[in-house]
Structures are given as C-alpha cells and as structure tokens.
Design a protein around this nucleic acid. Structure first.
Lengths: 226, 226
DNA sequence: TAGCATACCGGACGTTCGTTAGGTTTTGAG
DNA sequence: CTCAAAACCTAACGAACGTCCGGTATGCTA
C-alpha cells in the first residue's frame, strides 16, 4: 500500500482571468514577493505596510487595491509556500519504483521538502518563522492546510513503524516534529553559495539514518526529473 | 586534550544587594518572568509593554522603574537563557570520565542542552524564537555571547572530526547548525506531560547516531548529579 | 476616439505603541 | 516615630501603525 498521492491538493484557487500571459512582475506579484522577503527577514509584526509598499515601489494605499489586508498577504504567502512544498514532495515520490520501501519514501520526501524550501526561500521562510501566534484569522485558514501536510507525514511514518523499520530507542511519535523542524530550520543557516543542496540532503539523510533498524544503504543516488 | 571547560563564563553581573534573602517573586523578577512567557508565546513585537505590565500586576510606567527599556528586558531574558544552557552543558560534561571520547562529550552536551531548554522554558523559548532581527541593540550585546557558545560546539565537533569519528557522507560544517537547531526546535513541540525528557534525549541521540563512523554503543545510561 | 475598468496616489482617520514627567504610597532602618 | 529610598501610580507625549476615502492616471476594448 503506497502513501497518499498526491500529497495534498492545491489550495490556490485559479485566478479568474480569461486570457492573458501574466505580465512579468505585475504589481500584485511584486508586492507579494517583496512582502515575503520582508516577512522572512524581520517577521510579521516588524514589517510595516508602508515598508512593504516602498520595497515594491508603490504607496501603501495601492497595496489595498490588491489585497484586503496585511493578514491576507501573509495568508497567501504561506499558502504558496505550502503548495510548493507539497508539489515538490509529490514529484519526488512519483519517480520512486512502485515497490519502494517506507525508508525510501521518507528519504525521498526529505529531499523534496528541502528542495522546495530553498527554491522558494522568501515564501517558505515566512512560513517557517510563523509557528507562533499568527494573527488569529490567518491560523484559521492556514492551520488546516498545514495539518493536511502533517497528516501525510504521520501516515508515512506510521507505515514505517508498522513495517518494523525503526530502531528500538526511538520514539516514533517524536520523529515527525523532529524531522520537519530540522528541515525547516535549514532555512536559517544553509547558504547555497557555500554548499550544494545535494550535500545538505545527503548529510541530513545520513544523520537521520540512526533511526533505522536495518543498516541498509544509507547513501543512495537519487534521480531527479529534468 | 579536553574541550573547553567551563563552556562559558557567566554573563550576569552580580546584583549589588548587601544582604537580604530575595523575597519570593519580587517585582522585578516577576516582570522578567511574565515578559519571558509573553515573548515566548507571541514574539517580541507582538507583546506590548502594557500587556507585560498587566500580566505582572503592574502599570506600564512601573516597568520602567525596573528596566531601562523593552529591549533591555529582552536582552536580560536571552542572557538568562544562554547562561542556563551553558551551565547545564558544563555540569553534564563534568561527570564524564577524563578519557571520554568526542562522541561521549557531544552526546553529553546534547543531554545538557535539552535539559536546560525545558527547565527554563519561557526564557529559552524567547531565545530560540529570536533568530531573526533582534531590535538591533539587543543583537549587539547578545550576539557575542551566542558566538561564544557556538564556538564551544565548533571546537568540540572539530575534535570529533580530527579523530575521524564521522561517517563519510556527512559534511562536518553542517553538523553544528543541524544539531543545535534541532535541539532548540524541540521547544516548539515537545510536551513534558506526554513524554519524558529522557525519552526525548534518547530519541535525539539515537537519531543523530547516523553521523558516527563506528557503531559504538548508542544508548548509554547517563548519570545525573543530585 | 469614447468609455471604462484597472492601477495608483495624497492625505487623513482612529488606535496603539514605547516612553517619560511628576506625584503618591509602601517599606524598612535607625 | 521619622524619613528617605524604593515601588508604584496617573496622565500624557510624539511616532508609527493598519486602514480607507476621494480623486487621478493608464491602458485596453469597442
């Protein structure tokens, strides 16, 4: 029995534009990107709307032409981040053979999660920094989406546990928060200019190899789609 | 050659009181504790001074009788957290035999770090949440203290690397941020009422055992001082 | 070219923020 | 009991916050 696929359904409602090609860096997209960069660097409360507007080359009133409120900007950023992560994980799982072991699926998910984090950095960093006390309304919308992704990991780890994959001494209930928090925190220190994403992934997977019961091959080469 | 001991010297200047027994929950200590609890729950910017004061049963002006500014409160909280962590790690290292291996010292440090985190939770949580953009003046004072603790870990990991303890495939430069961020993040999800600190420590140490070259004994019993 | 939706702006609103001046109560030593 | 220091208060300051109103520029469609 394979893990749930796709990991999550997309949460972004399709834009109701009839035709068009999405002009490069439209006002709205630009504001969104600059806001994400600011939120990632300074946090939500420390980033003023006038500062966001200035970064986007716009006045603060203009922001309200594109977004209903500061909270809604935040909410959309986090949804983009979560969508990117689940899409990357899904893609990574799709290239696995059908008879992949739980361990192979977990390690593929780790690779996908890490890749998504560091190729959407402003958005995923905003998401990672926001564990505590989102402005209430945001958590109501974003909470269930996060829970959906958590459930995917819970199910995958449960399979591994049922298959007897874990070494005695590890508490399986702690693995999901341990793994996900470790991955997310790489956003705070990993610099792609000083080390490759492949090295990071290999180091993390090797480090986690302490949880597995069988020795297994720890450093397999992983294929990537073009 | 053993790792640096003590880990750090205390950064708290002794209170210049002449005698006294420090009445239980003095105004100042109370404000400090409530502020730490609030910062840990909601972050720095989201915690207003009037809210801090109210939690402490005091008016906001009174806070300024004990502290020069909101930033100074923050700064002191983080210093308390860092002092507690380095004290616990030092204590854990002191009970090791003199010929302890690098691996034993690292695992002892992990145990000490985790114990300090979860026995000073409001303070250490505030410290862990504050990776990004402290109010500038705070980072100037707190940055070097953090760097001192980071240096301790760097030196310890360097010893292990020199002793050839690490499995090929792991990038030693990534180990310190990987380990420390994993430990610090446990503050966000570990609930001491649902699992013991010993189980957490054992799971983490076992998980990290993937980095070691030799099989070694992964689950040793660790002594604790009375 | 006329019409219209979209994008943007100046300027203000009410609120909350960290902070402070100046006055009152509490406390403990002599 | 005296009296100074410590602890606490009320009330306000200017600044910055998120938000919004009314009006102007822009660019596509017909």
């Amino acid at each position: 029995m394979s893990a749930v696929l796709p990991v999550m359904k997309s949460t972004l409602v399709r834009k109701t534009k009839t035709r068009e090609v999405e002009r490069t860096s439209s006002g709205r997209e630009n504001i969104l990107h600059e806001a994400a960069t600011l939120f990632a660097a300074k946090g939500y409360a420390e980033s003023g709307l006038r500062e966001i507007a200035e970064m986007a080359g716009v006045r603060s009133a203009t922001v309200y032409h594109h977004f209903a409120s500061k909270e809604k900007i935040y909410e959309e950023i986090i949804r983009i981040a979560l969508d990117a992560i689940s899409a990357a994980v899904t893609a990574e799982l799709l290239v696995l053979p059908l008879d992949a072991t739980p361990r192979m699926r977990i390690e593929a998910s780790i690779a996908g999660h890490l890749r998504a984090l560091h190729t959407n950095k402003p958005f995923t960093s905003t998401n990672a920094h926001s564990r505590i006390s989102l402005p209430q309304g945001v958590n109501l919308v974003v909470g269930p989406i996060r829970e959906q992704y958590s459930d995917f990991w819970r199910a995958m780890l449960e399979e591994a546990k049922a298959a007897g994959s874990f070494k005695p001494g590890v508490d399986p209930k702690m693995l999901r928060p341990l793994i996900l928090s470790t991955l997310n925190r790489t956003l705070g220190w990993f610099d792609p200019r000083k080390g490759s994403l492949e090295t990071l992934t290999r180091t993390v997977v090797t480090m986690f190899s302490g949880i597995w019961h069988e020795p297994d091959m720890a450093t397999r080469v992983r294929k990537r789609r073009a």
